[in-house]
Computed example of a mutant assay.
Amino acid sequence: MSPDQGTSQDHHDGYEIRRIPLVNIYPLQDMGRATTLQRVRWHIKDHWNSAMQIAFTFELKKIQPDVVLLHNITGFSISIYESLADASVPFFQVLHDHYFICLYSTMYRRKKICDGQCLRCSLLRRRHLKTTQFATGVIGVSNFILNRIKSMGYFSGVPSNVIHNLSDKPPKINLTEDISGVAPKLGCTLGYLGILTESKGILDLLRAFKISAGPSDRLILAGHLDNRLSHLQTAFNTDSRIEYLGVVERDFFFSSIDCLVIPSKVPEAFGLVAQEALFRGIPVLVSNQGGLPEVVAASPSAHVYNARDPDGLTVALQTLLSDHDQWQRSQVISDIYYSALQQDWEKSYEGFLKMYA
Rank of each mutant, 00 (worst) to 15 (best):
100 F>G: 06
22 L>E: 01
257 I>N: 01
227 N>A: 14
307 A>W: 02
353 L>A: 07
301 S>M: 13
5 Q>K: 10
324 H>M: 13
217 D>A: 07
329 R>C: 01
159 P>I: 13
210 K>N: 12
57 T>P: 02
38 Q>K: 12
208 A>I: 02
131 T>F: 05
242 I>C: 01
182 V>Q: 10
16 E>K: 15
8 S>R: 12
331 Q>Y: 10
34 A>N: 07
323 D>W: 03
74 T>K: 09
243 E>L: 11
121 C>K: 02
186 L>E: 12
158 V>N: 05
265 K>T: 06
312 G>N: 09
28 L>D: 03
289 Q>F: 05
130 K>D: 14
319 T>N: 14
102 C>Q: 04
101 I>F: 03
199 S>A: 13
166 L>H: 08
91 F>S: 03
164 H>V: 05
334 S>G: 12
281 G>C: 06
269 A>S: 15
251 D>N: 15
295 V>F: 00
247 V>A: 12
199 S>R: 13
198 E>F: 09
233 Q>A: 05
187 G>T: 07
335 D>M: 10
115 D>T: 11
133 Q>E: 14
283 P>M: 05
14 G>A: 08
66 D>S: 07
270 F>R: 02
135 A>P: 01
257 I>M: 07
198 E>N: 04
59 E>K: 14
106 T>I: 11
356 Y>G: 03
217 D>S: 12
68 V>R: 08
351 G>L: 04
79 S>G: 13
105 S>R: 14
281 G>Q: 05
83 S>E: 01
174 N>S: 11
165 N>C: 13
210 K>S: 13
102 C>F: 02
348 S>H: 03
147 N>K: 14
332 V>S: 11
102 C>Y: 01
63 I>H: 07
354 K>G: 14
153 G>H: 09
345 W>V: 06
37 L>V: 14
206 L>F: 10
270 F>A: 07
110 R>Q: 15
70 L>Q: 06
349 Y>H: 10
279 F>I: 02
265 K>Q: 15
355 M>H: 13
131 T>P: 00
272 L>C: 11
196 L>R: 01
80 I>W: 05
113 I>R: 12
284 V>E: 02
64 Q>T: 15
151 S>G: 07
92 F>S: 03
333 I>V: 14
295 V>R: 00
87 A>P: 04
212 S>C: 09
310 P>G: 10
213 A>Q: 03
211 I>Q: 15
17 I>W: 09
138 V>P: 00
145 I>P: 00
274 A>V: 02
254 F>L: 06
210 K>I: 09
277 A>D: 02
176 T>L: 13
84 L>Q: 03
326 Q>G: 00
38 Q>T: 04
51 A>G: 08
318 Q>F: 04
82 E>V: 09
276 E>D: 11
3 P>L: 08
151 S>H: 04
303 H>I: 12
54 I>V: 15
269 A>K: 06
139 I>K: 00
8 S>C: 10
108 Y>G: 06
92 F>C: 05
54 I>N: 12
221 L>C: 09
338 Y>E: 10
222 A>D: 01
30 D>W: 08
170 P>M: 09
285 L>D: 02
52 M>W: 06
99 Y>G: 05
318 Q>P: 02
309 D>L: 00
248 V>H: 11
129 L>T: 11
336 I>W: 08
